[in-house]
Amino acid sequence: MLSTLTLNDQLALALGLAGLLFLLINLLLLKRNPPKHIPEPAKEAVENLLHVSSEQGKRLVVGLGQNLTNASFDLSGASGLSLQRALLKRSLFNDHPLQSFSGDGVLACLSRMAVHGAYRGALASELFDGSLSQLSGTSHMAYTASLANYIPDTSNAGLLLAGQMSPVILLALDQADRHSLPAISAIASLSGQAAGFFGSSVNLMGEDVFNAEGKLAQRKASLASLSAQDWLRITISIGLLLGAILKMGGVLP
């Protein structure tokens, strides 16, 4: 029961409820006021990659990571799916459609569903090809090796890494660099973000990783959650300051 929860869990629950409340409020606000376009690094970076892909008639390679249910169950492993969907809608009829690689069985199936759904939604189911969303190695090393092997293809326009990945993904980023392929990394793990920074890529950090899709697709739900995210961040900052003051004042143990 609730009483058995630790202080950490209670705090987490409170934050979760606050987040939900903020999300609902922002949804209502957005319903009344149309969303405005705010240029953001995350969106700009992804859009640029998409433009490169469209203009050059080349393929965009998306790495969705290798951990959704493989080891620990981590929803951040699915953060690339929404981005993939948003990109797909914009590049369905490109010369080379978006190609995605997943290192997890569930992720691969979800990714394939997203690809199929996008084509079906555009009434172009006949263009759907199963190879557009492939399973690659199910361990992080095998996944990276598989992805890096695909990068040198001359018909690739760019590399987008979105999801849970280990720092070994640096190999794929290096491969992209060697083949003059622009890369964006939106990796949901800390060590992966560090690797993304060290590699030659536009690196998204922190919550930016989850923002790219919202900024790109401009869906109300995504935009509302972005605003709610900001509110929650402010709340947490105030909470941390208060906690520090109370701790210094001896109120908190």
Binding site: A188, G206, E207, D208, F210, S225
Partner: peptide
């Protein structure tokens, strides 16, 4: 920790959307 908080917030919102 700052980055982790950011990731956590983003994840929370994503979880609500899902």
């Amino acid at each position: 920790r700052g980055l982790l908080i950011g990731i956590g917030i983003g994840l929370l919102m994503m979880a609500f959307r899902v």
